[in-house]
Design a protein around this nucleic acid. Sequence first.
DNA 1: CCCTTATTGATAATGGTTCTCATTATCAAT
DNA 2: ATTGATAATGAGAACCATTATCAATAAGGG
Lengths: 155, 155
Amino acid sequence: MGRCRGNAWWQGRFRGCGYRVTAGREIILDALTKTDKHLSAEDIYLSVKKACPGIGLATVYRTLEILVEMGLVLKFDFGDGRARYELAESPDKRANHHHHLICTSCKRVIDYTDFIEDEVELLRKTEKGLSAKYNFDIKNHVIQFYGICEKCRRK
Amino acid sequence: MGRCRGNAWWQGRFRGCGYRVTAGREIILDALTKTDKHLSAEDIYLSVKKACPGIGLATVYRTLEILVEMGLVLKFDFGDGRARYELAESPDKRANHHHHLICTSCKRVIDYTDFIEDEVELLRKTEKGLSAKYNFDIKNHVIQFYGICEKCRRK
DNA sequence: CCCTTATTGATAATGGTTCTCATTATCAAT
DNA sequence: ATTGATAATGAGAACCATTATCAATAAGGG
C-alpha cells in the first residue's frame, strides 16, 4: 500500500489515538474514499475482499467503529435494517457536505446539496446555542427528509 | 375503551386506511399519547402489558409499523441498537415539535425546542424546493445533533 | 531482533425485529 | 343480533445484522 501518499494525514491521527496502522484499516478507509455511495458493512466487506481476500467481516465492523468514533466516518440509518457508512469531510475530500432524502417505500436515498449553504449557516448558529445551553460538545449532525419518491408515487 | 372520546379522530383515519380498530391498537396509541419519552417497542410492550396482559410483542411491532406508515408516529434511531417511537404532532397534541441532541457516549437523548422557529421556517423552504426538484412527496424530517454530553465530558 | 500487546479471522452468541400459522376478533351485510 | 369474509392476534420460531470470544498473528517501540 505504498502508493497511498495521501493517507499520511490519517495514519498520524490513527497512531495519535493509540491505534496501529494495519493493511486492513488502510484498505477499508480506501474503499470509503473511492466511493460516494452509502455502503453497508457487508458492501465494504465484499469490496475489500477483492484486494485482501483474507479479511474478516468482524474486522470491517471493528474498523468502522473506530473510524466513526474518530469522526472520520459517519454512520447512518436509512431504515432498511442495516447501518450505512460514509466518509466524513476530510482534507482530501472537501465540499461533499450533503444531506439525505429517503424514500420510505423503496428505501432509495438521494443525496442533495441544494440549500446546503442556508442550512449550514442555521445549523452553525443552532449548534452554538445548543452547545452553550446544554453543555454539549457537538460533533456532527444529521438531517434527513422522509417521503415517497417519484417512482413509488406513480404506483 | 369507551372513555376514549378524543380518539375518534384517529379511529376514523384507521378505518379510512382499511385498518380495523382493535383494543391493542387503542392501548398502544394511548401509551404513546401519555408520555413524552422515547419508547422502544419493548418499553411499549411492557407498559401496555399492565392494562392488557394478553398482548404479544409482535402485535406491538405490527401496530407501530402501521402507525409509522400512517404518519401518526415517528420512528427514530439513536444508535443504541433499538428503534424508538414518538407520537407525531396531532390535533390533540400540538406544539411538541422538537429535535434531538444525542450523546454518542452514554446514548442520552435531550429534546430541544430552541431555535425551532428558524429551523422550521428554513425546513419548510428546503422541503418545498426538494419536493419540486426531486419530485418527492416529503412526509417528515429528522434533525439530530451528535456529541458528548456534560456528564461524559467530565470523565 | 525481541517483546509486549493490539489486531485479526473464524465462528459462536446475542438480541432486536420479522415471519408463520392456527385461532380469534372486527365489522359490513344480512 | 347473526353471519361470513377476512384482518388481527399471540406464541414462538426464524432471521440476520452486529458483537463477543479466543487462539494465532502482526505492529512497532526498545
